[in-house]
């Protein structure tokens, strides 16, 4: 009974997270400006990390956690690089 409830909750959590990813993707596609797209991309990365964590809870596999760690790291580095580019790409320092 409790197991069914927990599995159902995990499934619902994953649906909510996928909806959140869809909203973030919409912001990436829609813009309107470059900084909006980068913000959407960063949100997408964070949500993807959370989705991987829920998969990890569901399956009990450690591989999902390694993947979540790597996605979190990549997301940070790419957002930082993109933000830096937005600052330097346009105006000469």
């Amino acid at each position: 009974m409790m197991l069914k409830l927990l599995m159902g909750t995990i499934f619902l959590t994953q649906i909510l997270l996928v909806a959140a990813m869809a909203f973030a993707t919409f912001r990436v596609l829609r813009g309107p400006r470059a900084q909006d797209r980068v913000l959407g991309l960063d949100t997408l990365y964070v949500t993807a990390t959370m989705l991987l964590l829920t998969f990890g809870i569901r399956t009990g596999s450690i591989l999902y956690f390694e993947a979540a760690l790597i996605i979190a790291l990549l997301g940070f580095v790419s957002t930082a690089a993109l933000a830096k580019f937005l600052m330097r790409g346009e105006v000469i320092e």
Binding site: I10, L12, T13, Q14, L16, A20, M21, T47, T54
Partner: peptide, 12 residues
């Protein structure tokens, strides 16, 4: 889990 996913969804 529900609280975390709900907050994330509200954020997006």
């Amino acid at each position: 889990l529900l609280a975390g996913a709900g907050l994330t969804l509200i954020g997006t």
